[in-house]
């Protein structure tokens, strides 16, 4: 039995449909990400689970129990707020102890549990600090410790890293994943940052306009996106529009040339879009392949991003590990394997 199960949940705010028949399950001990652009309904879905919103239809169950009618304070679910929502009138210790006190834990139990959590988030000796004396990263960790303190079976995290700067964010990603693995608590994270979702989650639900577009593991989402939207939203991609030609095997006819396709279920002449990841294109000085010209070179450390101009005033982004061999304006050949990328049918 899954730990959390959302079945056919819908929610409207006035004329706005925030959630449209959404279903998903989260397993015990799983790190699950709700990924999508702002306004896609991911936060509403999270608030539905926390009990701050009630679904218009559908139901939410936790460990088999229907949560309908249960107010937030009676749900064994805790939430880490995007703004952290730390209590400014309480110090670090009392913030973390807040949930434990509501559970009626003894003074000794609270002492040891808070100390344990301060240890987990590496904030030992900072229990007496006031919230306003903390840095952004420290506040983030107190918020995490506070939400974990009551020992929830499911922790909801609303954009937990959004307020941190890039370097701290990457560091915290590892810590978050580490803490989740150690505690074996289910985490559901809401994020608009695809890198964060890919790096942290066991499974990702990509949402758009109140609907789930795809649920899958990070490699599944990245390599086999279920829709053009998912392909474009998760990771960088070249979206090439063209049509299918079925003479002598399957071909994708792009504005700059014909590309052989290994798997092509679409009928002859169907309009289609090919999503090609920058690293799925191989650049060479000569040989077979689509001719192009190097228009831009961006050195990124371990990789180099090239912009290659091809026919029909189109440009493709290519990522390679040896890109600095090329120079601006140099003519090159692009090799695209028949099984590279994903082909989507386009509405006629």
């Amino acid at each position: 039995m899954p730990l959390l199960s959302v079945e056919h949940a819908s929610k409207r705010f006035g004329a706005v449909v925030a959630l449209d028949d959404v279903s998903l399950t989260v397993d015990s001990g799983e790190f699950f990400a709700l990924l999508g652009p702002s306004g896609c309904g991911k936060t509403t879905l999270m608030r539905l689970v926390a009990g701050f919103e009630t679904p218009d239809s559908g139901r939410v169950t936790l460990a088999g129990q229907d949560l309908a009618g249960a107010p937030p304070h009676r749900r064994p679910v805790n939430m880490m707020f995007q703004s952290y929502a730390l209590f400014p009138h309480l110090n670090v210790f009392d913030n973390i102890a807040f949930g434990l006190r509501r559970q009626g834990a003894s003074r000794v139990a609270i002492q040891s549990r808070v100390a344990e959590l301060l240890d987990i988030v590496q904030m030992q000796n900072l229990g007496a600090r006031r919230i306003e004396q903390l840095s952004g990263g420290q506040r983030q960790r107190v918020a995490l410790a506070r939400a974990l303190a009551p020992g929830p079976s499911l922790l909801l995290l609303d954009e937990p890293l959004a307020a941190l700067d890039r370097k701290l964010r990457e560091e915290m990603q590892f810590q978050l994943k580490d803490i989740q693995r150690r505690l074996k608590t289910s985490f559901v994270i809401v994020t608009h940052d695809q890198d964060e979702a890919l790096a942290l989650a066991d499974r990702i639900a990509v949402m758009r306009a109140g609907k789930i577009e795809q649920i899958g593991s990070p490699p599944e989402i990245y390599e086999r996106p279920a829709s053009r939207f998912v392909a474009g939203f998760v990771g960088a991609t070249n979206m090439i529009e063209g049509f299918v030609a079925r003479d002598d095997g399957g071909w994708f006819v792009a504005p700059f040339g014909r590309l052989k396709r290994a798997d092509c279920a679409l009928r002859d002449g169907a309009r289609a879009a090919l999503s090609l990841r920058p690293e799925q294109i191989v650049v060479a000085r000569d040989g077979e392949g689509v001719p192009g010209v190097v228009e831009d070179i961006a050195f990124r450390g371990e990789t180099t991003q090239l912009r290659i101009g091809v026919a029909a005033r189109q440009a493709l982004r290519v990522s390679c590990t040896n890109g600095n061999r090329f120079s601006l304006g140099e003519p090159v050949r692009l090799m695209i394997a028949p099984d590279a990328g994903v082909l989507f049918a386009e509405a006629e």
């Binding site: 926390a50 009990g51 701050f52 107010p71 937030p72 304070h73 009676r74 679910v77 805790n78 939430m79 707020f81 703004s83 929502a85 730390l86 209590f87 807040f98 949930g99 509501r102 559970q103 506070r146 939400a147 303190a149 009551p150």
Partner: peptide, 12 residues
């Protein structure tokens, strides 16, 4: 959000 956080942590 402070009130929501308190409710979330089990406060009636």
């Amino acid at each position: 959000a402070l009130r929501e956080a308190a409710a979330d942590l089990g406060a009636s």
